[in-house]
Amino acid sequence: MDIKIPSTRQTCLASNARQTRLVSLLLSLSLTLWLALLNTAAAQVAEGEIRYLVKHDWVKKMAALEYVSAREREQTAYMWGNRSEWKEYMRLYFSPQRSRYEQSDEVAEAEMIGYAWRKEPLLFYRDFEQGRQFDIVKAEGRTYLIEDTLQCPQWKILNDLREVAGYVCMNARWDDPLKGHRIEVWFALDLPIPAGPEDLCGLPGLILEANYNNGAMVITADRIDLRALKTELDWPKPKIKGKKVSLEQYREVLRKYIAEQKKAERPWFWGVRY
């Protein structure tokens, strides 16, 4: 964990410590300091960069496709079982006003170090201040440049607490009606930024983990670097060519494609980002 914020403020937890017995002086001291760091982060963070580790499990992706016959899904699981996972890194630049999510230059699969594939074009840019968003997504072999007013999922707030990357997080859920995903996210209570990975946004805290369909794709922040950004969050000027559409037009493309694939009983996620 890379949290580099100087501590100045006394925290509620430290005061709380008075009430409890001395279990281990050393541990308490270091922990108190740490918690203090965590809590003060909220007050001080302005912006920074997050590296997310994305784990894809295509057997679980297959398992979530209810329109493919159970026979086929069971056979895939039986043959691939534990070998179906692959990992990649993604990067999020964020500030309270803007965020930018894109592919990282770092390679997550140790076997793939020393080889560089052509990456598919991808960008999720959010401007919370202006209420605008700009996405670059490849679907069905075509690149789309999507510019529209900011649209975030309609979250249901749940009641669990958990730590992710050194931050205490609460969970929330969204059922994506278009792709049929159930997405459970964990957002940091003390990073008051409505940003997150992929097209996820709009929670009172930064989303540090997103779990799609019970493990089919899990995006977890594994390095948080709070630092001043330069031009990373400027409105993107893509060099890439693509079809300019509105968000609704793009959704219509997806809707049609997914329906087509369902009819052919083929997984739709080979041609479209999960």
Binding site: C12, L13, N16, A17, Q19, T20, V23, L27, L31, W34, L35, L38, L161, R162, E163, G166, V168
Partner: peptide
Amino acid sequence: PIQRELMEVVVRTA
């Protein structure tokens, strides 16, 4: 408040 020991757990174990 959350019990201090529990908070420790939340934070200490990654």
